[in-house]
Design a protein around this nucleic acid. Structure first.
Lengths: 110, 110
DNA sequence: ACTAATAATCGTAATATTGCGATATATAAA
DNA sequence: TTTATATATCGCAATATTACGATTATTAGT
């Protein structure tokens, strides 16, 4: 069908996977790294920097905004984006819970 | 187009996003949590546990295998899956690099 | 008010993903 | 060998994603 059966999962599983999914595209990784590198808001030179059309970058930014990994404010005629620290850390912590829950000791059987 | 322009990105960005992308589905989160919870390989009762068709679960397992987050060995008539500790930690560390690179101090301007 | 610059949205085409049933494959048990 | 059980693969339909150009706001400067 192509539609995810969200009713099969816990709210936490759906929410976490939704956040992760947004991270799962090289353009959005590149955008985030670029924002982080600038250490503050950078604006629409992302398009030329990354090599995608302006509308495409705008769409990726929208997705990053939709899960609140970034936030933007109007800065004159441009937009100023930066990491949403609160949600950034929330996601980081949830990922750590997941990744740390796998036992290190080699009880693995395969 | 629908096709990601991988030539725009670094190898690292492509590889990382590919791994993350596989994590970005609730069924695959549920599968991983289930495997982790059992602390060792569990087999195909994942289908009934999660509530998807056997073929669908098999496909998700294939994707998790394709990025080597899990590995499986034949165990009689069933398959025995567990976390690939090496790649699990590798991904964890790469995620930490990304998440820690965002400065905590509120130099944020928006 | 007019113009320039920037970003968001719309419409569209190409491709990818999700999920299922049916089938094929492989091993264990009888 | 036959049968049962478990998993993988194939083919398909429905939907989602990615990317672009064109258009539409929105704000700054003239």
């Amino acid at each position: 069908m192509g539609v995810t059966k969200t009713e099969n999962y816990t709210e936490a599983q759906v929410e976490l996977s939704k956040m992760i999914k947004v991270l799962g595209h090289p353009a959005r990784i590149a955008i985030l790294q670029s924002i982080i590198k600038a250490n503050s808001c950078i604006c629409g030179d992302l398009a030329t920097e990354i090599g995608l059309a302006q509308s495409t970058i705008s769409q990726h930014l929208k997705e990053l905004k939709s899960v609140r990994l970034i936030q933007g404010t109007i800065e004159g005629t441009s937009m100023c984006y930066c990491i949403n620290q609160e949600n950034w850390h929330k996601l980081k912590n949830e990922l750590l819970v997941l990744f740390n829950s796998a036992n290190i000791d080699e009880s693995a059987c395969c």
